[in-house]
Design a protein around this nucleic acid. Structure first.
Length: 248
DNA sequence: ATATGGCCCTGGTTGC
DNA sequence: TGCAACCAGGGCCATA
């Protein structure tokens, strides 16, 4: 991975599902550094030619931080990229659920993008499926980019029970869910994300969408719409929060 | 093909 | 107060 990243210019940083994608420019035929073993050159040529992407998944506790190299590296710093600016791009991840990878310039997640999928296609994703709508929302090969918080929040806003079988929802319910999911994701992005425990952006700044959560992390607290206590169950192995009165 | 559940991993919280 | 047990969760893998 280090060989694939060396001397590349970062052209663009974007997002595919939950993955952060760095598009890297082809290396400018940079001569092998003095001391580089020639024998390794041939095998690396395939990786080093053509467009390359660096793929980062933050998992639960991962952070990408741009920092002054004179600052001490925090614990659990697993990768450090030395930038031409003199600063460092650090990947820090205490729980090690994050992932780093190299792609050949064609990385795309398996699922559809919730912010751009057409309503009919969204409805079609769930047809005939017997799993819960909550589990379906978390399945990255159907939709990518939706995690536990935004699954719960969008189901609340669409007034749908998380345990409801995905394939038995009405078209109207799925249309509502599609709209709610888009609205939740857009609002969360505007707010800089949900810093429930670990998430920060590249400057170390926390997001603040967690102040707008209506069900996630509010077990036992009154529903902001009807006042009923928010319930928490486990679905698809994940904590799942909903209002027993508002969500049918 | 589809669905489910265990597992990884550490820091924060809870309970005694 | 101090320590241990427990819990959180995204994705991969084995299993049904």
């Amino acid at each position: 991975m280090a060989a694939a990243l060396a001397n590349r210019r970062i052209r663009l940083v974007h997002r595919v599902g939950k993955h952060i994608v760095f598009d890297l420019e082809e290396s400018a035929a940079s001569p092998a550094a003095p001391g580089t073993k020639r024998s390794a050159g041939k095998r690396r040529a395939a990786v080093l030619s053509g467009s390359v992407q660096w793929i980062v998944h933050l998992g639960m506790s991962g952070r990408l931080l741009v920092a002054d190299p004179r600052l001490p590296q925090p614990p659990h710093t697993h990768a450090v990229l030395h930038l031409a600016s003199g600063r460092e791009l650090r990947f820090v991840d205490p729980r090690r659920f994050g992932r780093l990878a190299i792609a050949a310039g064609d990385f795309e997640g398996p699922g559809s993008e919730p912010l751009t999928i057409a309503p009919e296609d969204f409805i079609g994703l769930f047809r005939g499926r017997e799993l819960s709508i909550k589990a379906a929302l978390l399945n990255q090969s159907l939709l990518h980019g939706v995690g536990n918080i935004y699954a719960d929040e969008s189901l609340f806003r669409a007034r749908i029970r998380p345990a409801h079988r995905a394939g038995r929802l009405t078209r109207e319910q799925l249309r509502r869910l599609h709209r709610a999911l888009r609205a939740v994701l857009q609002a969360a992005i505007r707010a800089g994300g949900s810093s429930v425990s670990d998430y920060v952006d590249a400057d170390g700044s926390k997001g603040f969408f967690q102040t707008q959560h209506r069900v996630y992390g509010r077990k036992g607290k009154p529903c902001r719409v009807c006042g009923a206590p928010i319930r928490r169950i486990v679905l698809a192995g994940r904590g799942t929060h909903f209002c027993p009165r508002c969500q049918k």
